[in-house]
């Protein structure tokens, strides 16, 4: 499958500056992205990194200061307003705070985009019922948002965003206001929608757990710039940027506060993680190591783990450990002290 031929969204040299007094804020700097049809693409960053602005540039809710956004090859910023409004019906969007119409019932909320699209009433209702079924709320038709739980409200919002059968669904921190188990069920629903309806999903989040659960590829955004783009597996195994390392392996922060000679970050690639690698290594090398932090994750059904170990001061012991890891084909990277910038 050649995904490159199938770019649904493309961002080219995009920048966004907010003209705020006294000093303008550069929210996005020279962003380039390609999002393929049918994938779940994550954009992860800390708050204030610019990810909210970026996702709003994709449907032009925010006008880029410079640069272009292409949707199915069409340059959005060159479209007249009426065509842009029509095109937004092919891009659904859901939000952290759900943003349902409070004075409309669940089914009336889902009907709204169809009213805008001038779909006749009977068809609107039929389509809305179909969607309530899809999101698992067939019996809550007449409930108003205030009568629904957060998870149920997000389900209605998803149904509403899908009403006009969009090819892209933009998710703005869609699970950040939900508790962990509700988050899981909403993510499962998004994955199901992606798989069964073929809807391309672009989501922004500050939580690595969201990315690892459902994303195919991910972009890391830091201080208004994209610092890394790649498959989720690559990001976990070989995070390139300091911010990605921090997101993947929050324990890494500890390193900054420690002093010592050398530390290694050992990456378990899903094959060796069930072996007692560390114990074997200590026995084989006859050298003690200090575990600074450890974490393992289940990504795409395979186990991945990372461990940060501090090596003994003895250079010979350090060499034995590196040789041992190499001989066992275990991926590791040297962690350099005080280099988290």
């Amino acid at each position: 499958m050649n995904k490159q031929d199938n770019i649904i969204l493309k961002v080219e040299n995009l920048s966004k500056v907010f003209a705020i007094k006294p000093e303008p804020i550069e929210a996005l700097t020279d962003i380039n992205l390609e999002i393929y049809a049918g994938e779940i693409f994550g954009i992860i960053g800390l708050s204030g990194a610019g990810k909210s602005t970026l996702i709003r540039c994709l449907n032009l809710l925010e006008k880029p200061t410079s640069g272009r956004v292409f949707f199915k090859g069409r340059d959005l910023s060159s479209l007249p307003k009426s065509e842009l409004l029509e095109l937004r019906q092919s891009m659904g969007m859901i939000f952290q705070s759900f943003n349902l119409f409070q004075q409309r019932s669940a089914i009336e909320n889902i009907c709204y985009p169809l009213e805008i699209a001038k779909v006749p009433r009977e068809q609107r209702l039929a389509r809305a019922r179909e969607l309530l079924e899809l999101v698992g709320l067939p019996d809550r038709e007449t409930a108003t948002p205030s009568e629904l739980s957060g998870g149920q409200q997000q389900r209605v919002a998803i149904a509403r965003a899908l009403a006009t059968s969009p090819s892209v669904l933009l998710c703005d921190e869609a699970t950040s206001a939900l508790d962990p188990s509700t988050t899981d069920s909403i993510l499962a629903l998004l994955k199901q929608i992606n798989r069964d309806l073929g809807v391309t999903i672009v989501l922004i989040t500050h939580e690595m757990s969201v990315v690892e659960r459902i994303c195919d590829r991910v972009a890391v955004i830091d201080r208004s710039r994209i610092v890394e783009v790649g498959s989720v597996t690559d990001l976990f195994v070989h995070p390139q940027s300091a911010i990605a390392r921090q997101l993947v392996f929050p324990g890494g922060e500890l390193v900054e506060r420690l002093t010592g000679d050398a530390a290694l970050r050992i990456v378990f690639d899903g094959e060796s993680s069930f072996e007692p690698v560390l114990a074997n290594m200590v026995l084989a090398c006859q050298a003690p190591v200090n575990i600074l932090s450890a974490d393992s994750k289940n990504i795409e059904g395979r186990a991945y783990g990372q461990m940060l170990i501090q090596l003994p001061d003895d250079p010979a012991a350090q060499r034995r450990i590196r040789e041992y890891l190499n001989s066992r084909k275990i991926t590791f990277t040297e962690e350099i002290w005080n280099d988290n910038a």
Binding site: Q89, G92, M93, N99, F101, Q102, Q103, E115, A117, R160
Partner: peptide, 27 residues
Amino acid sequence: VDAGVIEAARSMGSSDRQVLFKVMVPE
């Protein structure tokens, strides 16, 4: 009227007139 709700309406392709009469006034 919640700015988020207005933004949601705009994301669905509502015109300014529709945002005003179909969303802001009823909300």
